[in-house]
Design a protein around this nucleic acid. Sequence first.
DNA 1: GTAGTCGCTCTACGGTCGTTGAGTCAACGG
DNA 2: CCGTTGACTCAACGACCGTAGAGCGACTAC
Lengths: 194, 194
Amino acid sequence: MSTFSTEPTTRQERRRRTEACILQEARRLFAEEGFERATIRAVARQTGVDPALVMQYFGSKEGLFAAAMKGAHGGGTARTAAREEIPSAVLRDVLAKFEDTDDREAAVTLLRNFLTHPEANRIMRDEVLCSLIRDLAGTIGGTDAEVRAALLMSTVFGLALARYVLELPGLAGAGRADLERLLRPALEALVGDE
Amino acid sequence: MSTFSTEPTTRQERRRRTEACILQEARRLFAEEGFERATIRAVARQTGVDPALVMQYFGSKEGLFAAAMKGAHGGGTARTAAREEIPSAVLRDVLAKFEDTDDREAAVTLLRNFLTHPEANRIMRDEVLCSLIRDLAGTIGGTDAEVRAALLMSTVFGLALARYVLELPGLAGAGRADLERLLRPALEALVGDE
DNA sequence: GTAGTCGCTCTACGGTCGTTGAGTCAACGG
DNA sequence: CCGTTGACTCAACGACCGTAGAGCGACTAC
């Protein structure tokens, strides 16, 4: 691959670096094109590397995808938030996820692919949403707790999709403060009174 | 293709019928597999027809997809609803769309593909959401009208995705009445007071 | 210096895809 | 009854894909 200007070039250093480059480019392409359209060849070409090297590192296209998804879901503050803090917490978590540039590409990739790619679907449902909903429902309490928690997730989920993927005008341009001001009353209504 | 038991077999009658069969199977496959994974060959095989016939009818895979999407978005009641009726209307519209079995497949197809397929993305954003948001914003009024309207759409949007596509436990099983009871206060909060 | 390791490239295979053009056969119009 | 039309099939092309294996060349260890 193309060498850089400054080279702390031990062997493993270079290896780590090219692997990181491949992963970064993979995330970008998966996010832009989707799993099927994004080709290993394109990832390799953009990185300036041979397709076979990508195979050697990640075993298969699935492996590359899985590696690109690692760390796409991370601990949020909502899971342990107090009942009255839940609306702010879920909103803050989802916005924070997409502000951090490192996570952002992985998160967008996950969002763009979870509908059509089984692995992404499983990750999204089982490792992100289900356990989070269970914890939230425990904090919310009451007979409809699980439905309320699921509705909370579906709402911020729709927000992320509309704002960061669909880029709906009016949402993509809105500021964080405006979103919080307008959306929090709705989220509080979903949590309900106690 | 395989002939049916009763045959009102005029030429155009048969043509209309096979075309409908192809479209139905195409919708199913596009919804299940996504645009890329769904192949013309698979559609043809399931229909019991030669792939070339699908090409002859719809010109290209894009053409088949566009034809399968036609009528996927239809007039809802929300567009012309009064201000205080908007929450009920948007909710009723989205639920109704997915209860009707005919529309359901097309709607799920659109949802599953708009993330990864540019054409579906454009349709969803420009022909469905944008004009609807503009109308809703006009009815809602005030300085944040457009953001409020967009948030309304993103919320029911997230609901549809979570309930009908992701099939989140707790939402997929919930009844319409429960959903309306729990979600309407949140939607009313989004519309805001006047 | 020399053998060995390892990051990396080159070349090629097998498979599936969308798409095409020629050909077949039953339904139609006169 | 016969020529024509048009729905439909068959066989094939070219492209691109994921993947495999052999080979190269620079770095490392002795």
